[in-house]
Nucleic acid binder design. Structure first.
Lengths: 166, 166
DNA sequence: ATGGAAATGTTCAATGTCAAAATTTTTGAG
DNA sequence: CTCAAAAATTTTGACATTGAACATTTCCAT
């Protein structure tokens, strides 16, 4: 059985048999898998009244430590978005009452963001159901497959310098 | 050596040791790899005066067959974007002289899009250098690794129903 | 035949993103 | 001490995307 990328590679083999398009077999699939998985996650969270980026911000804060506090710079790096986009997101999370924003004591350049009680409860409540749903999204792969896939992707990510920003 | 996702999983192990977050080891890495690869592709194409979406449209048409022609619906499906966004993109590509747009003979609902000579030349010229650059992006993986990675992702994609739209 | 449903594109309003400029605060060299 | 450079965030402006509403054309069961 061919997936969408196999079809694409077959088209290239007809159109430009002189070019080695094999890297597309990896990069095209990473890209498509990412978009399809993202769609699945979005669908699940939407049923619970959250945008994917909202859950992402909440869980990033939740797992950051007991005080669930980070500065804007670290948050924008963790979410891989621009500083301007992060300001926009935090404005809306503050408005929804899910996070608090306050100046950092001792360094007035920085702004600290913390989960409110409600934000923390929401993130904690949803976390387990969220991962259970992700597990279903991966149901086409055995445990062995998942380990192998994660290992190969780790190798690729490390070669591109994707170490933790912390 | 830990990548960014290992760090994330370690944080969850501290914060919520009761939850099985292992699916994140796969989904998180697919997502991060996709964004990093996309960034690398964007950088390369930018050096040649093209946006990533422009190259994507051009090559989609190029590999579609000898006449390099598709209807709007198929193009929007291939690019995974909304019909409205595609109209916008084609407006700009027509303006740049890279594609032609004309009503389909025999079915006046449809609009056909074709590469111009200039668009075809640009896509053909850039294709080889583009795939060579993608090859460099994957240089952290051996040929065996790449095959294994592509195979696992195909399995995942097929389980999510990602067969070719044609 | 024919009238309603489906298919195909385009337009439009709302929203989100990014890049760059502006603002505020800190740091450090002289 | 002081002023210039650096750091962290916010503001601003341009632009792309989505989803919904709309217009046109085709299909099909009556």
């Amino acid at each position: 059985m061919d997936d969408a990328v196999d079809t694409m590679l077959g088209q290239w083999a007809c159109t430009r048999p002189d070019v080695d398009v094999s890297p597309l077999g990896v990069i095209g699939r990473v890209s498509r898998a990412s978009r399809l998985l993202e769609r699945g996650v979005k669908e699940f969270l939407g049923e619970h009244g959250l945008e994917a980026w909202e859950f992402d911000m909440l869980t990033t804060l939740l797992r950051s430590g007991d005080d669930a506090t980070m500065c804007m710079k670290d948050l924008s790096a963790a979410a891989m978005i621009s500083p301007g986009a992060l300001t926009n997101r935090m404005d809306r999370l503050v408005e929804r009452g899910l996070v608090d924003r306050r100046p950092a004591p001792g360094n007035r350049r920085m702004t600290l963001v913390t989960l409110t009680d409600e934000g923390r409860r929401l993130a904690n409540d949803l976390l387990e159901r969220h991962t259970a749903h992700e597990d279903r999204l991966l149901s086409g792969l055995s445990a062995t497959d998942r380990d192998a896939l994660a290992g190969l992707l780790r190798k690729l990510l490390l070669s591109m310098g994707d170490t933790a920003p912390l």
